[in-house]
Amino acid sequence: MADYEVYDSPTPIEAGFKCCCPRCGEGKLFGGFLKLAPKCDRCGLDYSFADPADGPAFFVMSGIGIVVIGVFAWVEVTYHPPLWVHLVTVFPALIIGCLATLRPVKSWLVASQYINKAEEGRFESLGRHDFDSRRL
């Protein structure tokens, strides 16, 4: 019988909020601010499978942008503040909001890739019985 450990894996959302390993839920996922560590320091899971690409940046910019610009529009219509008030509040809100949520969203996407066993698509070669070239 093979020796293996059973892990109590967190859900992708839990792993995202904690920025932890998607398998054991304890190890660190990041080696820098947004750079993934090579592997988990607790269970040894190799993070080379993880490639969230630009997904986290897209989701964060879209979500934070919609919320902040919605609040900006509401404040403008309701209170008509001077332009400097918007400059002092909107840009910092966009920057801080994006930087604060980028790590958890990236961690969530990496955990989703791990749990759903996501990988690049590939073509399977068709066997002789699956494809008849005479029908073309």
Rank of each mutant, 00 (worst) to 15 (best):
Ile95Phe: 13
Phe59His: 04
Leu109Met: 15
Ser48Ile: 03
Leu36Gly: 00
Trp74Met: 09
Trp108Lys: 02
His86Glu: 07
Ala50His: 11
Gly44Met: 01
Asp54Ser: 15
Val105Ala: 15
Ser107Gln: 12
Ser107Val: 11
Val105Cys: 10
His86Thr: 04
Val75Tyr: 02
Leu102Glu: 13
Leu109Glu: 03
Tyr47Cys: 02
Val68Asp: 05
Pro56Tyr: 08
Trp84Gln: 10
Trp84Thr: 08
Glu76Ala: 10
Cys24Phe: 02
Ala73Glu: 12
Phe58Pro: 01
Gly97Lys: 07
Gly97Ala: 08
Phe33Gln: 13
Val110Gln: 08
Ile95Val: 14
Cys98Met: 09
Val85Ala: 14
Ala53Asn: 07
Gly65Asp: 10
Ile96Trp: 08
Thr89Met: 15
Cys20Lys: 04
Ile69Thr: 08
His86Asp: 07
Glu26His: 06
Asp46Tyr: 01
Val110His: 05
Phe33Ser: 13
Phe49Cys: 06
Ile64Cys: 05
Gly25Phe: 02
Ile69Glu: 07
Gly65Leu: 11
Gly70Cys: 11
Phe72Glu: 14
Arg23Met: 00
Phe91Met: 11
Pro38Gln: 05
Val68Phe: 05
Ala118Met: 11
Phe30Trp: 11
Tyr114Ile: 07
Ile66Asn: 06
Glu26Ile: 03
Asp54Trp: 14
Asp51Glu: 15
Arg42Phe: 02
Asn116Ile: 00
Ala118Ser: 09
Val71Met: 14
Trp108Thr: 04
Cys43Asp: 04
Arg23Cys: 00
Ile95Ser: 10
Val75Pro: 01
Gln113Pro: 03
Cys20Thr: 08
Gly32Cys: 12
Val88Ile: 13
Ile96Tyr: 08
Asp54Lys: 15
Ala50Tyr: 11
Pro56Ala: 11
Ser48Asn: 09
Glu76Lys: 04
Ile115Ser: 01
Cys19Asp: 02
Ala53Val: 05
Ile66Glu: 03
Asp46Cys: 01
Phe30Tyr: 14
Gly55Thr: 05
Gly97Ile: 06
His80Gly: 04
Gly27Met: 02
Pro81Thr: 06
Asp54Tyr: 14
Ala93Gln: 06
Ser48Ala: 11
Phe58Gln: 09
Ala37Thr: 03
Gly97Arg: 08
Phe49Gln: 07
